Simulated scan of single mutants.
Amino acid sequence: MDRFMGTWKLTSSDNFDEYMKAVGIGFASRQIANMAKPSLLFSVDDQGVFSMKSMTTFKTVEIKFKLDEEFDEITADDRQAKTVMSLVDGKLVQTQSWEGKSTTLEREVQDGKLMVKCVMDDVVSVRTYEREE
């Protein structure tokens, strides 16, 4: 998990609007999300609880988790999901399940960048973050 720690700033986003449509996010919320350039802050406390905080000028959302333990998540678009974060082959894999649906967000550090692959059914979005100094 060490490679994820620190602050990352969104630098590019491909097909994110289509991904949000597939998840079921409404037009107005998608417009705001498409304009937002979030920073992600990863940290860990003394008890081994990880934190991932997404910060924009519109909203800040933080989740706290232990690897491989399900928790209740209220997403940035206010979905109430059951979420599990796992480390798989060096990737931080987040699986959200709600109302009979599920989506997967895979985070991986490649060439010093944080790549986030968002998958909902057959729709894939890739978002790229660069480390903030």
Rank of each mutant, 00 (worst) to 15 (best):
M1N: 09
M1I: 08
M1F: 03
R3Q: 14
R3K: 10
R3F: 04
M5G: 08
M5Q: 10
W8Y: 03
K9I: 05
K9F: 00
L10A: 09
L10Q: 10
S12E: 04
S13C: 04
S13F: 00
D14E: 13
D14T: 05
F16A: 15
F16M: 15
D17T: 00
E18W: 00
Y19A: 05
Y19C: 03
M20R: 00
K21N: 08
A22F: 05
A22T: 13
G26W: 02
A28C: 09
A28W: 01
A28Q: 07
A28E: 06
S29H: 04
R30F: 07
Q31N: 07
I32T: 04
N34I: 04
N34S: 07
N34K: 10
M35V: 07
K37W: 02
S39P: 00
S39M: 11
S39R: 09
L41H: 05
L41Y: 00
L41T: 10
F42N: 14
S43T: 13
S43F: 09
D45R: 12
V49A: 09
V49F: 03
S51K: 08
S54Q: 13
S54D: 12
T56M: 06
F58E: 12
K59W: 06
K59A: 14
K59I: 12
K59C: 13
T60W: 01
T60S: 05
V61Y: 03
E62T: 06
E62K: 01
I63C: 09
I63D: 07
F65T: 11
L67Q: 02
E70S: 11
D72V: 15
D72M: 14
I74P: 02
T75S: 13
T75H: 04
D77S: 12
Q80L: 10
Q80P: 00
T83E: 11
M85Q: 04
M85W: 01
V88D: 03
V88Q: 02
G90M: 12
K91Q: 10
L92C: 11
L92F: 04
Q96S: 05
W98M: 14
W98V: 15
G100W: 03
G100N: 10
G100S: 07
K101Y: 08
S102G: 03
T104I: 11
L105V: 08
L105N: 01
R107E: 09
R107V: 06
E108N: 11
V109M: 11
V109G: 10
V109K: 06
Q110Y: 01
K113S: 10
M115C: 09
V116C: 15
K117D: 06
C118P: 02
C118W: 05
M120W: 04
M120G: 13
D121F: 06
D121N: 14
D122S: 09
V124Q: 07
T128G: 12
R131K: 15
E133Y: 01
